[in-house]
């Protein structure tokens, strides 16, 4: 055995060969084509995305900003009008905010509750797996289909209650549309809570409810909040279901109404305005369309900002 390899002996110095051996082994020969090529490809992709984004933003803002600068507050607070110089986005802004409130009030609690049930309570049977799988599928259904559902259920079948083509119908339709997204996001966030964390609380004699209420949900909250915001952003941009449940694409006036009449009456939303103004024959509407796109982007930006703030707050609280 001992002869099969040579043992370096202290009386035979061989620093030269060792050093040169180490040097050849440790220094790189040649250029790392694959590594640099891959990195170049990645940065080119980022560049392409940025270029597309910049192009879009430039096109919209260069047309839209002058309108906003000229009309200012008046553009945001005026109702719709056939006269391009007097029309404003107030009803669209209001409709969009109402829709977000609907989602926060209906889709978020129901979605969170469903996720908590599926992740924390339901046993892992073929039935719960089947349900989870279907929720995932529902998230991929085209939004037009939800629009058709909204039209037949909320506009027609429940028309007496919703007022037909109203913000109530649209709110419920969009809530159902985002429900699977909220459920999936909340389920992922709950699944990411370490089991050791649950066991720590159970080990102190906490009931399942106490563990969920005091440990699991606070821990998962940043993830859930992110999911909620993504869902709301998705809903903010939806147009197809709104068209189907009858968002107004022309002009309408809102006089003195009580809250119920307002909620049951005609409505519109920001993406709907983009859609309908883009189809207007009058040339002035081209710039107005860009202006309403800028307003929409601004609303999206504000929502994202709010989301980041909320998320950081929850994360801080999670640190204790």
């Amino acid at each position: 055995m001992a002869e099969s390899y040579s043992v370096p002996r202290p009386d035979v110095p061989m620093p030269q060969t060792r050093e040169s051996k180490a040097r050849t082994a440790l220094t790189r020969v040649g250029f790392d084509f694959k590594g640099h090529g891959f990195r170049g490809l990645l940065s080119a992709s980022v560049g392409l995305s940025l270029f597309a984004l910049f192009f879009l933003l430039y096109g919209v803002t260069s047309d839209g900003i002058p309108v906003l600068a000229e009309r200012g507050w008046d553009f945001l607070s005026s109702p719709l009008s056939a006269d391009p110089s007097r029309t404003g986005v107030w009803q669209g802004l209001k409709g969009t905010i109402q829709l977000v409130v609907f989602i926060l009030v209906f889709a978020v609690p129901v979605g969170m509750a469903s996720a908590v049930y599926l992740e924390e309570y339901a046993e892992d049977t073929w039935f719960t797996r089947f349900v989870s799988l279907n929720i995932r599928n529902l998230a991929g259904v085209p939004s037009v289909v939800y629009g058709i559902l909204g039209l037949s259920v909320f506009v027609k079948f429940l028309g007496d209650f919703t007022g037909g083509r109203s913000v109530i119908s649209a709110g419920f339709t969009l809530s159902i549309l985002v429900l699977p997204l909220v459920i999936i996001a909340a389920m992922e966030a709950l699944r990411a809570v370490p089991q050791s964390h649950r066991e720590g609380a159970f080990g102190l004699g906490a009931t399942r409810w106490e563990v969920i209420r005091h440990q699991v949900i606070p821990y998962a909250m940043p993830g859930i909040a992110t999911g909620i915001v993504l869902s709301v952003l998705r809903a903010l941009g939806e147009t197809a279901p709104l068209i189907l449940v009858g968002a107004v694409s022309g002009f309408f006036t809102t006089g003195d109404q009580n809250v119920v009449e307002d909620l049951q009456g005609p409505f519109t939303a920001l993406p709907m305005l983009i859609f309908s103004w883009a189809r207007q024959p009058k040339a002035e509407f081209e710039e107005l369309t860009s202006a309403v796109i800028v307003v929409t982007l601004f609303v999206l930006l504000l929502s994202t900002l709010a989301a980041v703030l909320v998320r950081n707050r929850f994360e801080k609280r999670r640190q204790g």
């Binding site: 964390h197 066991e199 720590g200 080990g203 102190l204 004699g205 906490a206 821990y219």
Partner: peptide, 19 residues
């Protein structure tokens, strides 16, 4: 739950709550 209130447990990996 009552059992665990009287019979406490400490785990392999320290698992303080994020508080």
């Amino acid at each position: 739950v009552e059992v665990r209130r009287r019979i406490g447990m400490v785990f392999q990996k320290p698992n303080p709550f994020p508080k």
